[in-house]
Amino acid sequence: MKNPIESLNKIFDSRIRLGVMSVLMVNERVNFNDLKQMLELTDGNLASHLNTLEQAGLISVQKGFVGKKTNTTYQATATGREAFRNHLNALEKMIKNID
Rank of each mutant, 00 (worst) to 15 (best):
A90Q: 08
I98S: 09
S14C: 05
K96Y: 08
M94R: 13
K63D: 15
T73G: 03
L58G: 00
E92Y: 09
D13R: 14
N33F: 08
P4T: 01
D13M: 06
T77M: 09
E54T: 11
N45Q: 12
D43S: 12
T52V: 13
K10H: 07
K93I: 06
L39K: 10
E82P: 01
S22R: 08
I95D: 08
L88W: 04
K68C: 02
V23Y: 01
S48C: 02
I59V: 13
H87P: 12
M38D: 02
A56G: 04
V66T: 13
K10G: 06
V26A: 11
M25Y: 02
L53V: 03
K69R: 15
T77W: 11
T79H: 09
M38V: 10
N31T: 01
G57E: 02
L39R: 05
L46Y: 06
G80I: 03
M94W: 02
M25N: 08
D13I: 12
V26Y: 12
M21C: 04
F12K: 08
L41Y: 02
D13P: 01
L53H: 01
T52Y: 09
D34K: 14
T42F: 06
A83K: 08
D43N: 12
L35I: 09
N31I: 01
N33K: 14
D13E: 15
D99P: 10
H87D: 15
K63G: 03
T72Q: 12
R29T: 09
S60R: 15
H49K: 08
T42A: 06
M25V: 06
V26D: 14
R85H: 08
M1N: 10
N45H: 09
G64P: 07
M1K: 05
K93M: 10
K69C: 06
N9I: 11
N9W: 06
G57A: 03
N86T: 08
Q62Y: 11
F32V: 00
H49D: 11
I11M: 04
G44C: 01
V26E: 14
T79V: 13
R29Y: 13
E54F: 13
K68D: 10
N89E: 14
A56C: 00
I5T: 11
F65A: 09
I59D: 03
L88I: 13
Y74M: 03
N3F: 07
P4Y: 06
A90N: 06
T77V: 05
N27K: 07
P4W: 07
E40D: 15
I16H: 01
P4H: 05
I98N: 08
N45C: 00
A83D: 10
D43G: 03
L50W: 05
S14Q: 07
T70G: 12
V30R: 07
G64M: 05
G64D: 08
V61A: 05
L24C: 07
M38F: 11
G80S: 04
R85E: 09
L18K: 13
N89G: 04
V61T: 15
V66F: 09
H49S: 04
H49L: 04
M38Q: 11
T52R: 10
N71K: 15
A47L: 12
